[in-house]
Design a protein around this nucleic acid. Structure first.
Lengths: 211, 211
DNA sequence: AGCGGCAGCGGGAAAAGCGCGATGGGTGTT
DNA sequence: AACACCCATCGCGCTTTTCCCGCTGCCGCT
C-alpha cells in the first residue's frame, strides 16, 4: 500500500467546465493511489464515474484473502447496490478522478442508471466464466484482451494495477501471474514495455487461448 | 440430459388468475427439465419471473467446459441484458413455470426492473468471491447457506439441481462436489435426505467455514 | 553512497483438486 | 423380471497451482 492508502480524497481538482461531464455538475475529485472511495457497510447514495485512473471493487475474507470483483476504467460508472448499503470496498488503483452522479430515486434516474448496471452485470457474469472454468494462462489471456478492448482496442496499453491486483482479480497468486506473463513474453505473444505497460504482438493467439 | 432437453415449452399451464402474478398478465408457461428458455444470441426483449421450479444461466467454452453464472428460484426475476441480445443460455433445471414480464423501454419499466437487476449484480459479485478465492469445502458451504436462505431459511430444503450443475456453478468437478458432501455428512454438519434434499444440522459450522 | 522497503521474478516442495475407472442405487422400458 | 441408462460415489495416480524461499532492480530517504 502506498502512503496515501485509506486516506480521504486529497484534492478537489481545479478544472474548467467540460462537456464530457454531462451527468455530474461537479468537477472530478482526485483520489490518490490506494485511497478508499467507499467501504463495505457505507451508505450507497450515489454513483461514480471514472474520469481518469482506475478503481477496484473488492471484498475480503476473514483471513485476508481478497477477491477483486471488477476494475472500472475511464468513462465507466460504478457504485450500484441493491439495498442502499455497499457490500464491497472501492479503492483507487492509481491516481484517479471521480465525478459523483446524484442517484435520484425517480424513474428517470433509474432509466439512466439501468444501462450502466446491466453492463456491470454482464461483465461480472462473463468474469465468472473466466474465474470458474479457465486455467491460469487462459485467465491472463482473457484479462489482457479485456483491458485492451476497454482502452480502445490498441495493441499497446496500460495495466494500471499491480500484479497482486491482477492475481486477486483472476483468482491466482502473484507468482502464477508473473510466471504466465513470462511465458507469454518468451513465446513472443506479448511484450512488456514496463511493469505497467504491455504490447500484444499476437492478439489472435490470445483470442484462441480463451476459446 | 433428459428427454425434454432443448425442447420448446411443452405446456401452457391452465391456471386460475392469481394475485401473486402482479406483473405479468399471462399464466405461467411450463418448461420441462432441461428445456431451453433462451439461447446465447437470442433477442432479449423481456424478463422472466420464476413461479416454481428453477432456472440456470450458463455459458460454454469451445471445448465444452461450462460455467453456470446463476440459479434463479421461485419469485426471482432474470433475463437482463445490456444490449438487447442474450449473452448466456437459460435452461429449466427441473419442471419450471415462468411468467414473462413485458420489458417496456419506458422509464417506469426501468425503475421496476432496476431493483431486480441490482440484486442479480450483487449476487454475481458475491459469487465471484466464492469462486475466485474459496476452496472446495468453503464453496459448498456458501452454496448450501445461500440455497437455504433463498428458500425461506429453514434447515431442511431442496437442491433442485444435479451434482453436475452444482459443480459447474461452483467451478468444481462433480467428484469434488460429491466428496465434500460426503465429508460434511461424515462430520454431522449436514444430512442428505435424498439426492436432491438436504438438512443442515450445524448452520453455525457452515457459516464459520465461509468466514 | 549506502540503506531499507517494495514489487516482480524464479526454483523447488507440497497440497488441492482433477481425470479416469469401477461400483452401486434408482428409474423407466421392454 | 430383466435390462439399460443415468447419476452419484469413491479410490488412485497425476497435473496444476499454491506456498515458501531467496534474488534482483527500482525508488526514496538519510
Amino acid at each position: 500500500m502506498s502512503a496515501t492508502a485509506k486516506s480521504a480524497p486529497i484534492v478537489l481538482l481545479r478544472q474548467a467546465p467540460d462537456a464530457r461531464h454531462a451527468f455530474g455538475a461537479e468537477p472530478p475529485v482526485l483520489h490518490g493511489a490506494g485511497s478508499e472511495v467507499y467501504a463495505q457497510g457505507d451508505r450507497a447514495d450515489r454513483l461514480f464515474r471514472v474520469e481518469f485512473g482506475a478503481v477496484r471493487i473488492h471484498r475480503l475474507l476473514a483471513d485476508g484473502r481478497r477477491q477483486i470483483c471488477a476494475f472500472y476504467l475511464p468513462g465507466e460508472v460504478f457504485g450500484f447496490e441493491a439495498d442502499g448499503v455497499h457490500h464491497f470496498f472501492a479503492e483507487a488503483v492509481s491516481a484517479t478522478g471521480l465525478t459523483a452522479l446524484r442517484g435520484g430515486a425517480g424513474a428517470e434516474a433509474a432509466h439512466d442508471h439501468l444501462g450502466a448496471a446491466l453492463r456491470s452485470l454482464v461483465r461480472a457474469q462473463e468474469h465468472l466464466l473466466v474465474v470458474g472454468r479457465q486455467n491460469a494462462a487462459e485467465r491472463i489471456a482473457a484479462f489482457l484482451l479485456d483491458m485492451a478492448e476497454r482502452q480502445g482496442g490498441l495493441e499497446q496499453f496500460d495495466l494500471p494495477m499491480s500484479r497482486s491486483d491482477i492475481g486477486d482479480y483472476l483468482g491466482l497468486t502473484i507468482e502464477t501471474v508473473s510466471r504466465v506473463f513470462s511465458k507469454l513474453r518468451a513465446q513472443g505473444i506479448i511484450r512488456l514495455l514496463g511493469l505497467r505497460s504491455v504490447e500484444v504482438k499476437k492478439p489472435g493467439v490470445l483470442r484462441a487461448m480463451c476459446e
